[in-house]
Every structure is written in C-alpha cells, then in structure tokens.
Design a protein around this nucleic acid. Structure first.
Lengths: 182, 182
DNA sequence: GTTGCCTATGCAACTCGTTGCATAGCAGGA
DNA sequence: TCCTGCTATGCAACGAGTTGCATAGGCAAC
C-alpha cells in the first residue's frame, strides 16, 4: 500500500521511467524503501489507470523506447491525504538478532565471522552516506526546503549506521567472552 | 523463509503452543520479528510435517485444548546450518522517511503531529526496554550465556530507540524551521 | 565473432503476509 | 442477561513481494 507513496515522492523529486525508478530504489531511495522492477512496473500501470500519474512515451535512439511518468493532480492529492493520516510504526525484522539469540543453543564463536561481515558492510554504508552528505549538503550553504528534508533523512541514516556499528562491537565483545570459556 | 528460524529459537528458549508463540511475537520477540497467529499456525504445521518440531496434545480444563510444540533434532540442525550461512542485510522500509521527503511538496507543518506521535511511542518503548533490562539483567549479576545474548539484543533495542528519539527531535527542529517562514 | 552487460518493459508462477470470519467454552462486568 | 474479552485453532480469499524467464537492440571487451 505504501510503495505507491514512495513512487509519488520519487516522481515529484524527478519524473522518470519505471526502469529509472527501479535504479533509484536500488540506490538512494533504497535506504528507506526497497522494490524490484516487477513491483514498480505493476504499480505504475495501476497508478496510471487510476490517474495518479501520467506517462509520456519517449522514443529513443539506440535504446528501447521508454515511458516517462510524472505526477498528476490526483497523485498529489493522494500523497497530501496520506501525509495527514497516521501510519503505524514500522515492523522491524532483524534476522541478525534472531541469530544472536540462536547462538545460545549452538557455538557462539560460529557467529563471529557473520557479525564481522555485517560490521564491514555497515561501515562501508556509513562512509558512502558521509561522502554523499559532504557532496550534496555542504556545511554553511543555504539549502532549499526539499534539500533540508532530504538532509535530515540522510542524517537519520548516518546515525543509524553509527549506532549499529557500536552495537555490533558490543555483540562481538559478548561473543568473544562466551567463546573463551566453553 | 526466516519465520521458521525465529520460531525455532523461541521454542528452544521455551516450548509452547501456536497461541503462546503468537503472544510472544506480540511482545518480546516482536521487537525484532513480527508475525500474526495465521502465519504461525501455518508454519508450525509445515514444520511439524517436516519433522523440525514435535507436538504434544495438552487437554485443558476450562480452556480449549492446545498443542505444545518442542524442537526436534532435525530442527536443531536446521537452525545450526542457518546460523553458519550468511544472511543478507535487512531491507529497511521506513514510511516516516518517505513522509518527510514528501513534506517538501506539501506543508511541512502538517507532519509535526505525526512525528510527535512517533516520538511518544518510541519514548514509551524505550521506557519499557529500560525497566525490562533492570528486571531481567540486574547489574553485577552472573548471567548464563543465553541471558547474556538476550541482553546484548536488548541493548541493541535500547540504543536504537535512543538514536531514533534524538533523530526525531532533529526532524521536528527541521520541520519547525521550515514552517516558520512560509 | 561471440559472449556478456546495459537499457527497457513485461508475463507467469510462486511464496509470504494480512484480513475477515468461524468455532466454542469460560469468566467478568454493566 | 447480555456483552465483551480471553484462550485456542483454523479456513478462505486477497494483496504484497520474489524469482525466473522472455524480448530486443546496442555496445564494449576478449
């Protein structure tokens, strides 16, 4: 139900084709929402039928033709309504937490490499966020409201990664302590 | 694919019926995994068929009979295998982040009450975590490995809530700044 | 010169997850 | 007395999300 809204926001920020949307969902938007191209194409067709978005056929040279979508008036009002109605707090699904509790019934040392791997990928993501922040939101610059809001979402991502790194260190310390005295 | 593993962990920590599992998923386990009773009953039947768990019929007085499940040898080895194979980093779906970016195309002030509501529910959850920590993991006590691992997962939840509260304050500051000068 | 990747859209089949409803006895309050 | 809520399990239908595959031209590498 909410993929529609994420697509509307993305199309308001910049109109684009289904393919382009899929890549955005792999990159920046994918930080807080994921979707495959299958889902996106299906939802785009429904949204067009419902009059939320309008498509323009773009004939391309050397590449397949594409349909570039933009948000219609109905789409804007759907988004505006959604903004004003409460959403439920996100339901978290944290596989690593399940694994950590599972380690109590197995060898805690067997988890160390997995946790280390996660730690590395979170560290890499933090680096990407920080360099993206420096590039897109230079300190002291006057930012448009749209950019200020994008920035505060990015700051959330940065703090999430920092918190996660510290926690994974805590997890690793715990696993090592439990491994040393079997 | 992973609900099975969460159920196995929960049944290893304490055998129980589908109904009891559903309540655990509403409470403690629900912090890092969610499931409805429908899903749980369906998966339990499949797991029993596959020999991962065994059921014992408990005839009760005044209440409906129930089937109490416990993990079988096959279930333990399934869990052990899963522990050793890498899981993908969680895919995040953060509706509030979508709303914040959507506010750029609407009135940012319209989001204030929604963000405040989220802030309150995260603050309440943090309080519950902290009192649960005091109750279950008193400082200085000698803890079993199982409890140490449960504690480190809970610490993750606590740090997540603290980080989220600070971020939501940042979001509210940004929304107010954008609202004051329209 | 063939292999593999990129752009671009889509069908079909499947699993996962949610929602509404049904049963059925017992307990507690208006 | 009726209504609500709790325990306990389950069916049926739907919607969300994934995976595999297909098409089809262009481009670069090997």
């Amino acid at each position: 139900m909410a993929l529609e809204h994420a697509i509307l926001v993305s199309l308001l920020e910049q109109p684009g084709s289904g393919y382009e949307l899929a890549r955005r969902f792999d990159r920046s938007i994918g930080r807080f929402w994921t979707a495959t191209h299958q889902q996106i194409y299906r939802v785009l067709r429904r949204m067009e039928t419902d009059g939320w978005i309008v498509a323009e056929e773009i004939v391309q040279d050397g590449k397949p033709d594409k349909k570039v979508y933009a948000v219609a008036r109905d789409g804007r009002s759907v988004l505006s309504d959604w903004l004003r109605e409460p959403v439920e707090p996100e339901t978290v699904r944290h596989e690593l937490a399940v694994k950590i509790r599972a380690a109590a019934f197995d060898d805690p040392a067997a988890l160390v490499s997995e946790v280390t791997r996660h730690r590395e990928s979170h560290a890499a993501l933090l680096e990407r966020y920080l360099s993206g922040e420096q590039r897109d939101f230079p300190a002291g610059a006057e930012l448009e409201p749209q950019q200020q809001l994008q920035h505060v979402v990015l700051r959330g991502g940065i703090e999430y990664e920092r918190m996660t790194l510290a926690w994974l260190d805590d997890v690793l310390t715990t696993l090592h302590r439990l491994s040393r005295r079997p």
